[in-house]
Design a protein around this nucleic acid. Structure first.
Lengths: 200, 200
DNA sequence: TGTACATCAGTGAACGCGCGTTCACTGATGTAC
DNA sequence: TGTACATCAGTGAACGCGCGTTCACTGATGTAC
């Protein structure tokens, strides 16, 4: 904890790397992230990061994983806030999802993009990714129990939801829909349409 | 047309560039495309491509545009085949869309990805992109006229469709859904769910 | 409490590579007369 | 039909850059006795 004056041992370089990488991604996109630039910006030698991450891919994988964890936390939060009403949970989760993407566009792209190839090599990243799917499936099941969503394989119905959320997020992020400002409204009506199809 | 023996003038370097780039993208992904590699593979000097494209970005934009044109052609074809039944047109177009993406994953990613930044600089690319949206809107309108889709702003309903198609395509392409082989079936049931919501 | 030593997070210089692109040029083509 | 010349698609060498990563190293830390 004696940080002052200690320029040799950084204290929490790993954490700082994750943090600064995330900030660089947010500000300038993934392609702006370089191992050298990162080290320079943190004020550490260019080889220091390699003490904490085997290579650049590993660092990006960790950052992507962090993103999934944040998204998952928000999804769970949305669910918990409306624990008594599954359908409301569902609606909130859909919106929260798109909200997250719109607020963290470059990070969202990293999470789903091709910068991290070879995802098999990062089991914890894959696990974090799976949680999204699991959460959606769970809430669908709950809605089915409350008879707000038609019967059928939950994972299949959940897929429709995820596809919609993912597609809408990306179209918004990439500016393919002129929706500046009223993304929220747009997402709402879109999900209501889907929900109507899921009901019955 | 006297191609034989003429090694100086290629004949159709522009077309060949587009073709080979598309093939490289299909085989190894966009990141594998380099101006040098392209020239080498075609057997032309490394500067020759610059006679036809201002820079790499311009080449990729042209390839992306080509992709949109191919997709649009298939959408129109699907529509024309079922001109008498708007709802059938609609269904076919949805499936054709996902089919295209699954068959041309890397190309599809280029079309919607971040490799081509600065799309404003390529008006014809933007035009080709808009056609997708326009086509979907048109078929939605038609379905509304035949009272197969509920009333409401067609472009908004079309958005739900596009988002679903886009999201499903990407999830499939990126292997985030274990669906090897039965993508088609999966897409069908997913779109049916959406369609149920669009009906009424 | 003091010392010896293993451990590990840092350093700094350098390697080596592939890339996009520019430059001054040359060979082929097509058109005007 | 033959020649002069503008045009344009090619060439080949080279520039210059930023990048990820390796190497042999050194300074700080914590633990065993």
């Amino acid at each position: 904890m004696s940080k002052k004056g200690n320029h040799y041992h950084h204290g929490d370089l790993r954490g700082t790397l994750l943090e600064v990488t995330a900030r660089m991604i947010a500000e300038k996109g993934v392609e702006s992230v370089t191992m050298r630039g990162l080290a320079d910006q943190i004020g550490v030698s260019r080889t220091a990061p390699y003490r904490h991450f085997a290579d650049k891919a590993a660092l990006l994988a960790a950052v992507a994983e962090d993103g999934f964890n944040r998204l998952n936390a928000r999804l769970r939060e949305a669910k918990a806030e409306n624990a008594e009403d599954a359908l409301l949970s569902f609606r909130r989760m859909c919106l929260v999802y798109v909200e997250f993407a719109v607020e963290n566009p470059t990070h969202y792209r990293l999470m789903f993009g091709q910068e991290v190839l070879n995802r098999q090599a990062y089991p914890s990243l894959m696990a974090a990714t799976d949680v999204v799917h699991t959460e959606v499936v769970a809430v669908v099941k709950q809605c089915q129990q409350e008879q707000k969503i038609k019967p059928g394989p939950p994972s299949q119905l959940a897929l429709a939801v995820w596809a919609m959320a993912h597609g809408l997020s990306l179209l918004l992020i990439d500016g393919r829909i002129p929706a500046a400002g009223h993304e929220r409204k747009l997402a709402e009506t879109t999900f209501e349409t889907l929900l109507a199809g899921l009901a019955q």
